[in-house]
Nucleic acid binder design. Structure first.
Lengths: 201, 201, 201, 201
DNA sequence: ACATCCGGGACAGCCCGTTCAT
DNA sequence: ATGAACGGGCTGTCCCGGATGT
């Protein structure tokens, strides 16, 4: 990244970073077990031989780093929304709308890589489970902070944020099964009702 | 196993049924790709040689039938709750509480087999995706019917039911990541707020 | 084996047996680590897909069974020599002479598979080490029995047999390094001297 | 490490020498194929990148130099024994006793690196085979010289020395298989009988 | 109808010995 | 003299058919 001063824009960058990007993309669609190292190599264009130089921990380490990257990428998007939205309700709507758009525009192939890795691997690899744990806590914290900004108590804000993060994950599951964005609207309704109740009460 | 009506004394039942039961159990914990045919054979005690006699469609067919069996098993539990609960709010609480109990008592190993298969396989096998689609619609229908019984309009009932089913799936994801039942409480709060708003409005 | 009634003599037999035979041959020349599963498949003509049906323990199990087969094959040869030789000294000479012939005729490629596996794997796999332990004890027992038949005490016979088995293994090592049968002559001289001393004493 | 003459305080010595020492140690226990470059780097602490600067011939060259170093190290020990022992018989006993001690004290992990490389690589690399050839000739020469000093003819001395070197190699093999020092006693008996016969004759 | 042995490629993740840019 | 990077090959295991009984 640093030593590419005059790069038109389409050239290859760090093979290590390419691998993580490819992992994020493929895990989102096909899960951890459904993606092989060979797929990651093919998708990233990274050289096969240096995988275990960059990632001595193997596929699991790649996934951990992909989870971290995805965590920050999504966190940045949520934070941008939280900063730009005039009210909490608008912000929450943005969250569900944006996720629905991701699903629809990818023809329901792109889900949440962290969610799928959680379900597949939580019982098998504690390293992966721990990585996913941090992800949801991170996202929840951003939502809670925005909620507090609108006057909610820390307790209420945490609860609302937990409901939001969970509702998104669930909507992704049902939306992919039904090939429909409707679950996001349903989920948004629940979270919005909670937000209103907390504000009104 | 539990509803065996007149079995002389612990003898083997239908090997076909045993396989489906084993598949349900294993898929819930480790996902579709994480469970091999050998695991199913070992867990079910079914004869290895006749798998492709009973299930010509192979592993995918086993999963489809396991999804159908799980769909009906969970549907029966939800219907029992819907019939016994005095109010919609109590019923909704029961749903989240029961699911939380499943997670906690299995040390967060048992999730929802349909949810995990959805995320893993929706992009790969339309047969599996279609099976999961029916599952969520079925469960949602039961919840919606109970909501209508409490006076909600069909439109509101469907939305509330959709929020409920999605919130459960999402809570499972986050609960497994965090090894905590808290996400179910958060999710319940959102759904309850929506139910109250619909009743009050 | 059973369903090949009218087989001229050169046709394929049990693929399991073929694999073990190939393993014996290849391990003798190149050692355990120097021979891959692919080599065994190529040399034996056995089907690749059923290796782990016949040998669930993998390469190690193949080696254990190859060691057992080699043990018995050599034991049979030693026993034949022990039975046919008129005196202990003639028998001992036969042992060294026969082994020297194996080395020379194979251009010093064929050694003792058990010896090489011992040196390579004794510190890594106790299953393999234990298999080799039995091999040398078995061979030593045959030699000792022949020595007792010539009047040696059990103590002397065991010692002489131990010296013989060890001397053969050592002669194989040095002969392969020097591409010469001379080490067998030297080794035989030592063992013969011991036999004579025991008889004379 | 031990003979470091004027080293300020435990600092690193020649990385080239460290690599050879590590190779000797590891090859003795696990063989040539069983030791990887990474193991050598880890055990020696030498920088990974400069291996092919110091050893352009790669792993094979490292092994050749390790063989040469081991040859001289053992030769020095044998020569010391030959010089100090009052008689040929005492000297021979020392050889077997010392080797037995090496095996026992290392829990049968340390063998003769030259012997194992011979068996593994004689058919694959003539460079390695040739190196091992010189080793055994060197050791044999020292033993023969000591035997001549006790009055044996050059012919007898060479034969006795050959028997000795071979018997040691063989005893190492059997001792590692059986986790017992007994093979050294058996081997010593044979060689001692030969020495006595030659002297007496 | 039902069960079994065996066969069949393909590919999984991992690690090897080696070389390049500096 | 070296950290970074590389192509190839390792063992193990996958899901799945034929051939063969019973």
């Amino acid at each position: 990244v640093s030593q590419a001063p005059a790069d038109g824009g389409g050239a290859k960058r760090n093979p290590r970073e390419d691998m993580i990007q490819a992992a994020m993309t493929l895990f989102r669609a096909r899960g951890y077990e459904g993606v092989g190292i060979a797929d990651l190599v093919a998708a990233s264009g990274a050289p096969r031989g240096s995988i275990y130089f960059h990632f001595p921990g193997g596929k699991e380490q790649i996934a951990v780093e992909a989870i971290r990257a995805a965590t920050e990428m999504v966190a940045a998007a949520i934070e941008a929304g939280a900063a730009s939205a005039p009210t909490l309700e608008v912000f929450l709507d943005m969250v569900f709308t944006e996720w629905a758009k991701v699903l629809v525009e990818s023809d329901y192939e792109k889900g949440c890589g962290v969610g799928i890795i959680t379900l597949e691997m939580a019982s098998k690899s504690d390293a992966l489970r721990a990585a996913t744990e941090g992800t949801f806590a991170r996202w929840q914290g951003i939502v809670a902070a925005r909620a507090e900004r609108d006057g909610l108590s820390p307790t209420d804000a945490a609860r609302l944020a937990g409901a939001t993060i969970g509702a998104v994950q669930g909507a992704i599951v049902v939306a992919r099964a039904q090939r429909s964005p409707a679950p996001f609207a349903d989920a948004a309704a629940g979270v919005q009702a909670l937000a209103r109740a907390m504000k009104g009460g």
